[in-house]
Amino acid sequence: MIELDSITKTYLLGKESVKVLDKISLKIEQGEFVAIMGPSGSGKSTLMNMIGCLDKPTTGIYTLSGENVSHYNDNGLARVRNQSIGFVFQQFHLLPRLSALKNVELPMIYAGVSKSERQTRAVEALGKVGLSDRMGHLPNALSGGQKQRVAIARAIVNKPKIILADEPTGALDSKTSIDIMEQFRELNEDEGVTVIVVTHESEVAAYANRTIFVRDGMIQQPPAAIRGASE
């Protein structure tokens, strides 16, 4: 489903060229639950952006569901994101003046879904994450865990094949983090959604079936402690 072949990413900082990803080759099959780990500055977030079609490789080939998306323009990448990928971020990224229901409806507006269907699907998505009684609440009336559940509902409402979560528990307490990771586990096991989580927490990575460790822009064998937690 996801195949990266010798992907590199280089940025120009002034006159200096900085290589962030260095010939990364990677396959992730449909229905996998994968964690991406690595220290700060390792390139793991850049790798996530690449997988999520938020950025394009400098060299190499990225094939997603049979499509070579490596050189798509911005409109092409936006189409792929809207049709195939749901995003969940550490800081939730909810619009403060919109209710939970309206926040969840947003991706469907961009997808051209009718108003009546948007509401029906948003209600269903919020029900899946246990927020049927919070649909009319604004984000400032929700707890951190509830905000992240709204973000998950927004991510799944277009029925994507892939969920990409970037440090989804980073702003949450331990108990709420467990609840959120259980949500991802259910999406993966019950609905077959491919889940990819970027994290620095071994407790979060332990939910995944496979851990990819990134250092200095390259994929490396995970340290023994992390490897053991994922086995």
Rank of each mutant, 00 (worst) to 15 (best):
V69R: 00
G31N: 09
Q183L: 09
N103I: 00
D166N: 13
S177C: 12
H71I: 13
R81V: 09
Q148K: 05
S114A: 13
E201K: 07
T194S: 11
Q91H: 12
P39W: 03
P96L: 02
Q148A: 10
T46G: 04
G76N: 07
D22K: 05
G52V: 00
C53Y: 09
K56Y: 09
G14S: 06
L126Y: 03
Q220I: 15
K147W: 03
L131R: 04
F184M: 02
A35Q: 07
F184I: 06
I196D: 01
K19E: 13
Y11I: 04
P57A: 05
Y207V: 11
S42C: 05
V204K: 00
I163N: 04
L4I: 14
A224E: 15
I85N: 10
P223I: 10
L47Q: 05
L54A: 06
G136K: 11
Q148E: 08
R185P: 08
D5V: 14
I196N: 00
D179C: 09
G60A: 08
H71C: 13
G14N: 05
F33A: 11
L95M: 13
I51K: 03
K115S: 14
R134H: 13
P223V: 08
V198H: 00
Y207N: 10
V193R: 11
I226Q: 05
T169L: 12
M48H: 04
V88E: 07
T8Y: 05
R154H: 04
G31P: 11
T63P: 05
L77M: 14
C53K: 04
H200Q: 02
G43F: 07
G43V: 06
T211A: 15
K147G: 02
L164I: 15
S99A: 03
Q183F: 09
T169H: 04
I28F: 03
N140E: 12
R134D: 04
E3T: 14
F184A: 01
G130M: 08
I163G: 07
K23E: 14
T46S: 11
I162N: 04
E203L: 12
E201P: 02
F89L: 08
P223M: 08
A171M: 06
M48N: 04
L95V: 13
E203V: 13
H200M: 02
N49H: 14
N209K: 14
L101Y: 01
Q119Y: 09
G41K: 01
P223A: 13
K23H: 11
G127R: 00
T10L: 06
T211H: 08
S45D: 01
D166L: 10
T120C: 10
N68A: 06
A125W: 01
I226W: 10
V88R: 06
L98S: 06
A35I: 12
Y72D: 11
G60H: 06
D74L: 09
V198R: 02
A153V: 04
K19C: 11
R121M: 15
K128V: 10
K102I: 12
V150R: 00
D216N: 11
L164M: 12
E117A: 09
E186H: 12
T176A: 02
R79E: 15
S202C: 12
L131D: 09
G130W: 00
